[in-house]
Structures are given as structure tokens and as C-alpha cells.
Amino acid sequence: MNKKAKSVNYAKYGYIFSIPFVVAFSLFTMYPLFRTAFMSFTDFAGVAARETGVMNILENPLENYTRLLFENELFQTSMRNTIFMWVINFIPQILLALLLTAWFTSRRTKFKGQGLFKVLFYMPNIITAGSIAFLFSTLFAHFGPVNYLLYDMLGVIPERFQFNQSALASQLIVAFIQFWMWYGYTMLILIAGVLGMNPEIFECAEIDGANGVQQFFYVTLPNLKTILLFVVVTSIVGGLTMFDVPRLFEDGGPRNATHTLSMFIFNQAFGGRFFLNRAAAASMIVFVIVAILSILVFYLLRDKDAAAIKREIRARKRSEKQLEQVRKGVQ
């Protein structure tokens, strides 16, 4: 009793200490989000509107959306590029990360120097993405090291390749930079997930005679589901908002081949002509896509056993309630 009285006494501090977070979140995240949503239904565009801040809801409030989705070629291209570059970077990234995880956590084959390899693989992630993108654009330049290696030294190409003029090559390089920057991170998260598992399940598998490969596919992978979910969702969010690398690699070129959704939003809103309503609508579309994909991934990777148990519990409770009611009725 005494204890309870005390906790009631102090409860107000829970509210007081949460105030800074709540205020800052409302001001800097919630309000701007609602403001963006509102703007996406208005005619808020142009230098004059930016100066006065005056905006009116459009006759057809969804006009900005329909224009973007069905008429704006740059938006459609940006969407395609973003998805394409995310997919071709994420699939090899997750496969390599899984392979390295299997090796680094293998109970049979111990690789030496794991600490050093982890440090090296994660390093590109910590270096400013913009610097890396620009570094790669110099590496792939006309007189850059890659052309030097392929043309001058090895002679495997007939002339210096214009990487910055080829749409596909530029997209592949951007995807490669993303892959190269993130596989180390993904690997570290997955390794942490495996090390967090109960070692007994691996011992059991060993006793049952499972070899390394079987252990990985039948024990490690199913238990890694939640971590995989986390990796996929964060990668989707990061991938759809890809900005620094494509911007500093070729500034979206050649011919918009590496133009991404966040570059679209940036350029429309702040590129000089202030199409703020259009950028706001594009932001909301990105928001909805992220939400849908996250929910979808959650659903696909959900713990089916846990869900089944939950359903069972709920069903039992319901039948108990019904039983209770029946009993009451009898009485």
C-alpha cells in the first residue's frame, strides 16, 4: 500500500520529464508533417507564394497527386530509379551479409582476424556519403583510375569508357556505392542477432548431426527473422530517401538516370522555382509507400507461431466469456 502511494506521488515527474521531447517532437516533426500534408492539397508554389506564405486549397484537392502519378515524367523516372537502385543494391548486400554472418558465427570453422575484417567492412559506412560519392565519380572519371586500369594497363576495353554518360553504368555505380557502404552494417546487425541466440539450439542441431550448411538454413535463419525484418525495413526507409550519393555522384544524371525521389523533392521545392505543393505531395507519396512496405514486410516475416498462439488465447478467452454468459443465463 505504502509503495503504491509513493509511486502516485512521483508520477507527475514522468510527465514533466517527457515535456521537452513532446514539445520538440510536436514542433519539429508533427507540425511540419501535418503542414506538408496540408500543402500537398494547395496551390502553394512560386517565389511570390514563398514570400507571402499564402496558400489556398485547390478546386480538385488531389490534383497535385494525380499530376505526379500520371503526368510527371521526372517523378515517375525518379520512382523507377530509386526502386531499381535499391533492389540491385539490397539483394547482393543481404546475401553477402548472410554469407559473412554464417562464416563469422560458424562453430566449426574459425576465421582469424575477424575483428580487423569487421572494422574494415564497416568503415565505408562511417565516412561522409557525399565524399564517397564524389570520390567514386573521380575514380570513374574519363582519366580516372578505373579507366586507367581497364584501358591503359589491362587493355580489356578498346577505348576509355564514359561511365558518366551511360545511364546503366551510373545506376550500377550508385547501387554499388550503396552496397559497399551498407553490407558491413547489415553483417554486424545479423552477427549480433546470431550471437544473441540461445547456444543450446545449435548444440542440439549438432547432436542431431546437422552440418554447417544445414544448421544455417534450418536453425540460424528461422531464428533470425526479427532481425531480418529490422534490416529490411530500415533499408527500405534508407533506400527510398537516398539522397547524398546520387546527388554528389552525378547530380542525378546522366539524363536523370540516377535522379531519386528525395532529389525530386529537394529540386522541386528548393531548386529555385519553389513547387512546394508538388514536393509536399511527393513527400506524402513516399510516406505512404514506406508505411505500406513496412506493414507488408511485418506481415510476411511475422512470427507465425506466436501469432497462432495469440489467436488461440483470444479464442479461448472468447469461449470462456461465452461460457460465463451462458452460465449467467442459466442462473
Binding site: T29, Y31, P32, L33, F34, R35, T36, A37, F38, M39, V237, L240, T241, F243, S262, I265, A269, L276, A279, A280, S283, M284, V286, F287, V290
Partner: peptide, 8 residues
Amino acid sequence: PGMVGTVG
């Protein structure tokens, strides 16, 4: 994603 409220 932090980017979605940028315009606002």
C-alpha cells in the same frame, strides 16, 4: 523517414 516532413 525524417525526410517526409521537410517541406513543412
